[in-house]
């Protein structure tokens, strides 16, 4: 009995490792693909597909690494722990036991906490580096995060009321049977609020003030180098892809196969890219005001919409 339970748990860990590998590779490749698309728009050829992998390898092969203290070490570790933790509770492929990860009742709450965890670890780590630009980047990043979390949380509450469950698997299950059952159709108000929050989450223009390469070198990671930076680049690919999978599960009907997953997540990513290349950057006060006004109002409206229209 115990041995059977242990075996099942071990195979789950094995399956999760496989998922982690696939999602990270996919995130890195998609990053290169998007870079190449942007390069084509600018009339360039752009980076080779292998470039993100080489960059990470190079950072791990650096010979020296300066530390600024214990928290400086732990910052990138917390960051990637947040990325892995988020992926661990998001079912990647619907209906496939192998790629459902550690999905369970109430995993939606856990995922939202894990998304926050990595950012806080990064804030502590970059804070210890003592670089003034890091502190500015952290202040901007955390305040922007507080702002976009509100419409996102409201949208999540809205769909939780709509489907009457906190399990992502059940939310995906409720959307099966054709595109007319997807949340984007049945509860388009919540989807709109969440997609506006998504723009802030992905950190492209107009909400990229916390990275701002021209003004505050690159914000929080200014002092991070070598293997620390390698971990953060890995996490950027993993966490980005995980957020896309989460949005696909919550609002766009999930995926029953890898091809469907890749098409859907790519299209969701393109929303942030198209808006990113078309709009200039908001200042931090403008960005926060924006999130507190329109997306928050849409989020509140989505809860009213669910209560008045869908559940009555």
């Amino acid at each position: 009995m115990i041995v059977e339970g242990l075996g099942g748990w071990l195979s789950k860990v094995g399956n999760f490792s496989l998922t982690l590998l696939i999602v990270t590779t996919y995130g890195l490749l998609m990053g290169a693909f998007i870079e190449r698309i942007i390069a084509k728009v600018q009339g360039r050829i752009g980076i080779p597909y292998r470039q993100p992998f080489i960059n990470i390898l190079k950072n791990f092969f650096k010979r020296t690494a300066i530390s600024h203290g214990v928290m400086f070490y732990l910052g990138p570790v917390f960051r990637i722990a947040g990325g892995i933790g988020t992926l661990a509770f998001v079912p990647v492929i619907y209906g496939d036991e192998m790629f459902s990860n550690f999905s369970m009742a109430g995993d939606l709450f856990l995922v939202i906490y894990f998304m926050f965890f990595g950012q806080l670890g990064m804030a502590l780590g970059a804070g210890e580096s003592g670089h003034p630009y890091s502190a500015i980047g952290i202040a901007r990043g955390l305040s922007q995060m507080t702002a976009y979390e509100i419409p996102f949380a409201l949208a999540v509450i809205s769909i939780v009321i709509q489907y009457d469950t906190l399990s992502i698997t059940q939310i995906v299950a409720a959307q099966q049977g054709g595109w007319q059952n997807w949340t984007v159709v049945t509860n388009w108000v919540a989807t709109l609020a969440a997609m506006l929050a998504f723009l802030g989450m992905m950190g492209y223009s107009p909400f990229d003030i916390f990275l701002a390469p021209q003004e505050i070198p690159i914000g929080p990671p200014t002092e991070f180098h070598s293997a620390y930076l390698g971990l953060m680049q890995l996490n950027r690919a993993l966490f980005g892809a995980t957020k896309l999978v989460l949005f696909m599960n919550l609002f766009f009907g999930g995926a029953t196969g890898w091809v469907e997953l890749m098409i859907k997540t790519f299209l969701i990513y393109m929303v942030a890219i198209v808006i990113g290349v078309a709009f200039p950057r908001f200042r931090v006060d403008q960005g926060i005001r924006f999130f507190f006004k329109i997306p928050t109002l849409i989020g509140i409206m989505s809860i009213i919409y669910v209560q008045m229209v869908l559940t009555s």
């Binding site: 009339g43 360039r44 470039q51 080489i54 002092e223």
Partner: peptide
């Protein structure tokens, strides 16, 4: 820029000395 496009060779600008080689 589009004329020379050093990104092809893996060259990128980096704003901080810690990360550049």
């Amino acid at each position: 820029t589009a004329r020379f496009d050093a990104n092809r060779f893996g060259v990128a600008g980096r704003p901080t000395p810690r990360q550049s080689s």
